[in-house]
Design a protein around this nucleic acid. Structure first.
Lengths: 206, 206
DNA sequence: GTCTATACGCAGATAGAC
DNA sequence: GTCTATCTGCGTATAGAC
């Protein structure tokens, strides 16, 4: 694995993330990826074999950040801290991986036809862990009796929307692009909805 | 405009909504639409002229329901009633127009390249009206000081997710498909988040 | 390892018979 | 108004020179 290979593969993945995000899988031309990556088209095939395999490589590149975002849920015992940190982490993914997030969203929207089984399994496992924890908190009287799954869906949707529907949001806000202040406001609103809406209690201050 | 024409156009639109939703614009073959509609492929072209025009017709078919969903915001003066009804209306769109909703979402996700200007204008107008009303309520002390735009984004995202990410949700719930009970639970959770989270006050019972 | 030039298949669109 | 048969262009993929 030469240094040039690693470097070129990175360039291609970065370019591909963007083109796939903007156009969707079927509508993207490998020629456009090559152009953005400033490499000849056959190099794409030399490094990745096919458009399909390149696409899967892009999908896999977001998997780790996505799974890592749930770390707060494990780390913090305090429900308020855990949920606040989780919402922030999810919003940062939308901010920092806007293209990969979109590719992932598009993939899920169409029934995950290209998503490898092992990734699906890990995401499912994560879902079970998170909703179980929410239900635990409900059982311990640490929050109002809400359905953990549906609360999770609401958190996912309202954080991911800042990447997936970026176009709509920037237009509604009358901006060119979202800045850190917008993400702060988003975090404030979503956190309030969850913490106050579900009457989540802190372990330290009752 | 013969009766047969109207009937065939309906059949084609219905089939197209589904195929476009499942595969995305670029990946759908007009042949597949024709097959599902049980008509020969050239009829698609006879009635709609091109794949692109057919796609736009599908987009336009959801516009009215989408705009109509905001009626509660206008009809009800009471913030609690208005928001509760709005959330319910948005969820019903996800339930009753799952395919068209997905097509619309996919279109927005990619920057609305095919969405006619006049539809964009009407949706923008609606966005302004809704966020202005939310800000009014805040100004009148009828709800906590939340940013109207971001609250709106959260409501949109968490209701549309039941159509757009249907696959993920049914999998997480371990079901084959969502039933009315699931939508009721979704409504309950989202309504709680908004009403309790933003401390929305009812006009009648303070 | 890199890239120019080319093959090949698929799917959008249509000509023209009925 | 309907449909069979066909054209054509575009985009994935590769052969083969360097």
């Amino acid at each position: 694995m030469s240094r040039i290979r690693v470097k070129n593969e990175e360039k291609i993945i970065r370019a591909a993330s963007r083109i796939f995000a903007e156009n969707g899988y079927a509508a993207t031309k490998t020629a456009d990826i090559a152009e953005l990556a400033q490499l000849p088209k056959p190099n794409i095939y030399y490094y990745f074999g096919s458009k399909e395999k390149l696409y899967r490589a892009v999908l896999e590149s977001v998997t780790e950040p996505l799974l890592a975002a749930s770390a707060p849920f494990i780390e913090y015992r305090d429900p308020v801290k855990a949920l606040t940190a989780y919402i922030k982490a999810k919003l940062l993914i939308s901010r920092d991986y806007p293209y990969a997030s979109k590719v992932f969203a598009s993939e899920i929207m169409h029934g995950a036809p290209h998503l490898p089984e092992d990734i699906i399994a890990r995401l499912s496992e994560q879902t079970r862990t998170l909703s179980a924890k929410l239900n635990d908190w409900v059982g311990q009287g640490l929050m109002a009796p809400v359905n953990g799954h549906h609360l999770l869906f609401a958190i996912w949707a309202s954080t991911q929307t800042y990447a997936d529907f970026n176009w709509q949001i920037t237009m509604a806000l009358g901006k060119e692009e979202l800045d850190d202040g917008d993400f702060d406001q988003a975090a404030e609103v979503i956190t309030r909805l969850v913490i106050d809406g579900c009457r989540v209690k802190s372990l330290t201050e009752g």
